[in-house]
Amino acid sequence: MKVRFLTIVLFSIFTLIFNSCSRSKNEVNVYVWSDYLSQDVIEEFEKETGIKVNLDTYDSNEALLEKLQTGVSKYDVVVPSDYMVQILIRQNLLHEIDKAKIPNLKHINPRFLNLQYDPENKFSVPFFWGTTGFAYRKDKVGKLPETWSVLFDEKYKGKILMLDDMRECFAVALKLLGHSINETDTSILLKAKEILANQKKLVKQYNSSGFDQAILSGDVWIAHGWSGQLVKIAESDSNIVYVLPKEGGTLWIDNLAIPKSADNIENAHIFINFLLKPEISARVSEFSGYATVNETAKKFINQKYLTKQRYPDEEALKNFELMQDLGTVTKLLDRFWTEIKSQ
């Protein structure tokens, strides 16, 4: 008798768990970068289409890859950066996009279409773009030249922050050496490693999530970082300057894509098309601090955000490159990075 009772209890617990897993039909599960989409944009989409949005966030491309590789989580829209699109395509993790369902594609600046990581944009639609540079405090260090070498200057020992990001740090060293950020030659990578190893004693912290706060609070004077956050604080504090070094660096593009495992393919297309509406793209761009790839959207963006800092011209971007996946070389880089960190 007791056994039967317990079986019933256990059974009902399991059914409860499984029931709560299956969701209602008319919805879209979105997995995006943190601080990317504002609540009012989501609400507007829900009101306009009657589709419910379930929002989840991540803070690194690798976290996204991890989730999609395990295949457990069912997301309908994700936002991988350039090199991650390449990896996801090669791993066969993305669903082909039906361009007929995304008429707003016409607003996108052709400069950002048909790039190497997805030659025909079969699997991804560009959304935002930006750069990796550095910011410094004018009030502490005066005016600095636009070169990465200031991050290696003994004068600023203990006042320098580097991104805690293997690829981005190597990109800086490789650019200083005059090479591509996607260099795979071992002897060159070894030289880059030595540069970074020597720099370590000057670095106060390696940090990829709070670099903007660290320079804003004056904890560091020079901070390596991504344009979105650094441009935002440079706009709010006139003592902070964001620099695109003349040697060049990383140019990155975030893309909307649909994972293969998506349940709501139709709704995913509707959501992507909605985000590409010029007035929506404009609002999302103002909110997040990133530059939009949507040409028409620029008409809707407040003039004060259309600065050279947010939208650098071709001349300033001359030496900037997209990051590519390095395949097995990642293993070598990881070894070098571990050596630098553990010395």
Partner: peptide
């Protein structure tokens, strides 16, 4: 620690997230 020196916990975490190993 400013992520400046690695402990074995960081080493393991890096393998899963950064090095994808």
């Amino acid at each position: 620690g400013g992520a400046k020196s690695i402990l074995v916990g960081n080493l393991i975490q890096n393998q899963f997230i950064v090095a994808r190993d």
